[in-house]
């Protein structure tokens, strides 16, 4: 396996993960690792287990076998049966394939919820916006404004998210995840249902996040062109098994991958 450019130590390790729903094996002894600062993609045909993999990392599903380990305070630590909110606490953020935004709330409030974990002042002070609570609110608001600028959605700050067009909603989803300042960002088909321009914008944002903020990115994507362009390394899943792992060039030349995507003549 070749070293990805500029990638550091392993930050997230998936080891022998098996996940079954009744008799269906969604994931079968899947192992791979993610290194710091890289863009790591998970691809595969429909039903390959990509989203299941993401949901395992995110704590939505607990695998029957295998472990997930995450670098925390300098050491890889196994996390065992963690709930999604505990996973979030340990520094993993995610976006959703089918938008899961807080539709009734404004863009600003949506992204502010991403800072919730970091707000610690007393309820009463917050309600009255006095003293340390006011300072804290301003401090987090500044961080959120930076994200809003970064995603170029300044004009929609106060708009309820439900009223924004799809492409912009996707950006808000990304913004909310960024507000958590995660060490690993899981993106579940961020380009799904977008037109070419929107896809290009989203690609640019993802690469900028990776570059400027140094965030490690795990990306699930259908669009092969996009994946090959922006990924450092790619994992290929098919029927819940890993069939390929390597740089985009390596994966592109892998016969098993070609068969899975194009079909084999029997």
């Amino acid at each position: 396996m070749s070293d990805a450019q500029g990638a550091g130590d392993v930050i997230l390790a998936v080891e022998g993960v098996t996940l079954s729903f009744g008799g269906v094996r969604a994931l079968n002894e899947v192992s791979f690792d993610v290194r710091e600062h890289e863009v790591r993609s998970i691809i595969g045909p429909n039903g390959a287990g990509k989203s299941s993999m993401l949901n395992v990392i995110n704590g939505v599903y607990h695998p029957q076998q295998g472990t997930i380990r995450l670098r925390m305070d300098g050491a890889l630590r196994e996390f065992h049966d963690m709930d999604p909110h505990e996973v979030a606490l340990s520094g993993i953020a995610r976006t959703f394939q089918n938008l899961a935004l807080f539709k009734g709330m404004s863009v600003l409030d949506n992204i502010m919820t991403g800072r919730n974990l970091r707000m610690h002042t007393n309820l009463l002070l917050q309600a009255l916006r006095i003293g340390p609570a006011a300072r804290e609110e301003i401090e987090h608001r500044e961080a959120v404004e930076l994200i809003i600028d970064f995603l170029e959605i300044q004009a929609y700050r106060k708009t309820p998210v439900g009223r924004l067009p799809y492409g912009l909603q996707k950006r808000v989803d990304l913004g909310r995840a960024l507000a958590m300042e995660p060490s690993v960002l899981l993106l579940d088909e961020p380009m799904a249902g977008m037109n070419v321009e929107e896809k290009q914008d989203m690609c640019r944002f993802i690469l900028d996040v990776n570059d400027q903020m140094g965030t490690t990115i795990v990306l699930i994507e259908h669009d092969m062109g996009v994946v090959m362009d922006i990924s450092d390394r790619v994992v290929v899943l098919d029927y819940g098994r890993k069939i390929g792992d390597g740089t985009p060039e390596e994966v592109r030349g892998n016969q098993a991958v070609i068969d899975a995507y194009l079909g084999v003549s029997h």
Partner: peptide
Amino acid sequence: RALRAVADDHQAAQSIG
């Protein structure tokens, strides 16, 4: 804010901690 978030979408609320 967290309460309003949970009201809108359980899953997303959990994902942000």
